[in-house]
């Protein structure tokens, strides 16, 4: 098997709140993303998806565990190798209103990284490259955009600039954290299509963080979706399989709760009831499987005491749930 572009091995991240209060935002997460692959991380707020993204781009250090970039532990990278990693992995932020410098024109924003890293020689070459980048993100005619300031652009256009900026340094991996949640429904899809086109063209791998499962399915069509709950990755499966045949009870509850843009479907949808509506505090996580106090399929002692491991099945799905693993014991494959 080829070396994954990014690999997380048992990564945990804790935050100290007060003297005696420690929360575990990300708990023992292992995940690898292959070259050119799309993985979506889905979960509710506070589940650790953003923290995971930040650790991958080295904005936060893991408290435990290791993250590998092309097989090398990013904590040990130095000098040129570290620079290659920092250039190779880029982040697209959620809020295009906050992530662009309001004092810089679009040209200045996009030219700065090119010049700083010596990726283009001379003014003319820089300008050509900037134009190329704008074209790649479908901001055309490009001459209309070069001298504009962010406030002259719509939210969707700004997010395109933000994507173009992440592409200036020719990355091989992009972390997009809720990158389309701030733009209008009518243009979300075209933004995602631009990302998909770039992925095809440049062989980019993308980690797309979102709370919208329908959007995740659309974007990760050929890729995978991972579901997080209270800091843990609880299911990781090929995108369409995850939506059509969810394994983990939490994923099933989520899917049954999502309203759909079709009155017949949504009003007849059978909702799975939770045992409790209360989301446990990260400060006092339940023992065993952290979903057990709310889980409709909870099966007693094992769920309450033993943290379920992530197990893969022969159809490519994997889930961290005792009852599911018992039921599908015959299909389990060794990792």
């Amino acid at each position: 098997m080829k070396t994954p572009i990014i690999e997380l091995q048992h990564v945990t991240r804790t935050f100290q709140l007060k003297r005696n209060q420690v929360i575990t935002a990300v708990n023992d997460v292992s995940l690898s993303v292959a070259e050119g692959e799309i993985v979506c991380l889905v979960g509710e707020s506070g589940c650790g998806k953003t923290t995971t993204g930040k650790m991958i781009v080295d904005l936060l250090k893991p408290s435990q565990g290791h993250i590998f970039y092309k097989g090398q532990d990013i904590a040990t990278l130095k000098g040129e190798a570290r620079k290659q990693y920092r250039l190779g992995v880029q982040l697209v932020h959620q809020d295009p209103y906050a992530s662009l410098n309001p004092m810089r024109t679009i040209y200045q924003t996009l030219a700065a990284p090119l010049q700083h890293h010596g990726l283009t020689q001379g003014e003319a070459a820089t300008k050509n490259r900037v134009k190329e980048l704008l074209e790649m993100v479908d901001l055309t005619p490009v001459n209309d955009f070069l001298d504009k300031f962010p406030h002259q652009l719509s939210g969707g256009q700004r997010q395109r600039v933000s994507i173009a900026r992440s592409l200036t340094v020719n990355p091989s991996f992009i972390v997009a954290d809720e990158a389309v949640s701030m733009v209008d429904v009518s243009i979300r899809i075209s933004l995602l299509n631009t990302l998909l086109k770039l992925k095809e063209k440049m062989g980019l791998a993308v980690l797309f963080i979102t709370h919208d499962l329908a959007l995740a399915k659309y974007f990760a069509w050929e890729g995978r979706i991972g579901v997080m709950y209270l800091g843990r990755l609880i299911e990781l499966s090929p995108a369409r399989q995850l939506v059509e045949k969810p394994q983990h009870p939490y994923t099933r509850v989520l899917l049954s709760s999502i309203p759909e843009a079709d009155p017949d479907v949504t009003r007849q949808k059978k909702q799975i009831e939770l045992r409790s509506m209360d989301v446990p505090s990260l400060l006092h996580l339940p023992t065993g499987c952290s979903f057990h106090p709310r889980c409709p399929f909870w099966e007693g002692e094992q769920c309450e005491k033993v943290v379920p491991e992530m197990v893969s099945f022969s159809d490519g799905t994997s889930a961290a749930c005792h009852p599911v693993q018992r039921e599908r014991a015959a299909e389990m494959v060794q990792a």
């Binding site: 256009q157 399915k217 659309y218």
Partner: peptide, 19 residues
Amino acid sequence: AVPTLAAHRDNVTSIPGSP
């Protein structure tokens, strides 16, 4: 333009242009 859980990817299209 709104992807649904059941929708096939090819059936989702965006509205061109901006508001």
